[in-house]
Design a protein around this nucleic acid. Structure first.
Lengths: 217, 217
DNA sequence: TGTACATCAGTGAACGCGCGTTCACTGATGTAC
DNA sequence: TGTACATCAGTGAACGCGCGTTCACTGATGTAC
């Protein structure tokens, strides 16, 4: 019936908006710390944090689910930017994979709330929610696969099932990252080493399998 | 003040219990399907399902958290039994690791509610809850590590960091399993193949690294 | 065996609370002339 | 520039609901004698 939801922009009559989707997203992120899942936030909590009346929420989102999906998308985007930076800075002696892992763990230690959310929310929430998380993981896998292929070409080594390799690494890193969130600061370095070794096992395994004849399995 | 909580057993005066902790656990498991997290169940829901008054709950558990922990412990135990069976049935041509994965995926497809719960709840819920899940994963890693060592000895191959290898495999399998829960039946076979290949990458990588001289990293 | 009694598993009713959602509204802003 | 008007972002109050927890209770069961 009413004509709202997207703030539409473009100068039209009416009062100027004073809160935005971003304000609500920021409030929700602030509330969802390392130990609090987005899916347990209540609409009233978020609006309270944002300093608006509960019903004003509906001017920006249909429901909390829509907000949660927006947060996940932002979190994935942010993480990809971080890893993208790490990738650019990577030199040949510190491999792309290794420096990506370090960037990932560094971000995790800096208490990046968005990253915490992305790691934690994979298995809970609505279908729309889970699909949003999966989409971000997929982006990640795709970029990683490109890296791996480029790396293999540079090294002259083969690569066995690059897509599968990227998937295995992505899932492993995210799963390990989720458990690392609660880690005390002094354990971070050794944890990063462990994770790097795990990934190295996968990469080494892939290369070894690629070098084998068709006696696979 | 009051003397309850553990039903104490042993013939003492008083009415015979008609509901047990098991009844409440069963009710909660029934409610927490593949798409519903244990941590979203309400006390009233569970008692309603069990057919008792809400306040009777307190005769068995301090709160829902305690119930959730009990469920996780049961789930882990059940999974270890299943894998234990698979391990016994494993012959040399179908490796221990492979038949364990197949048993795992088979159980997943059979809509085992306990397994669903264990896979889904790793990252949500209270601290006590998360610790309970971690404990189960730890049991799993330990058993897997023994398998890997035995396997390496039998094959005469070395094994690089068996503990880390077991951890990587466990986390990967659980993370992949969590995403496989929603999979349609006809995708299960190919998914199992993918997962087996991923694990094979890790195992191959570990063996290759073990065979290398100390030029590691 | 029969009776008086203590125990305590399970109950029914009630509480106060925070929730999501609705409704009719207000008043700042921009437009038309 | 000034005035009348339409728009609509944000509000305050209210709703009905399910929740966790409490209280005083009931009555079946077992024990003591």
């Amino acid at each position: 019936m009413s004509s709202n939801l997207p703030p539409v922009s473009g100068a039209l009559p009416g009062r100027k908006p004073v809160i935005s989707r971003d304000d609500l997203i920021a409030a929700a992120i602030k509330l969802a710390g390392p130990s609090r899942s987005v899916s347990t936030l209540s609409l009233r909590e978020v609006t309270r944090e944002a300093g608006i009346a509960p019903n004003s929420f509906y001017r920006q989102f249909r429901d909390m689910d829509e907000l949660a999906v927006a947060i996940i998308e932002r979190a994935g985007q942010s993480l990809r930017e971080i890893i993208g930076e790490a990738r650019k800075r990577a030199t040949q002696d510190r491999s792309v994979v290794r420096s990506s892992i370090e960037a990932f763990m560094e971000q995790l230690r800096s208490d990046d709330r968005l990253l915490h959310i992305l790691l934690r929310e994979g298995t809970v929430g609505s279908d729309a929610f889970k699909q949003a998380v999966d989409r971000q993981l997929q982006f990640f896998e795709d970029e990683l696969q490109h890296d791996l292929v480029r790396l293999a070409q540079a090294n002259g080594t083969g690569l066995f099932q690059p897509a599968l390799t990227a998937k295995a690494i992505t899932r492993l890193v995210f799963a390990m990252g989720a458990t690392a969130m609660d880690l005390p600061d002094d354990k971070f370095a050794s944890f990063t080493e462990e994770l790097a070794l795990m990934v190295r096992m996968i990469v080494t395994g892939t290369q070894t399998l690629a070098a084998l004849p068709q006696v696979v399995r």
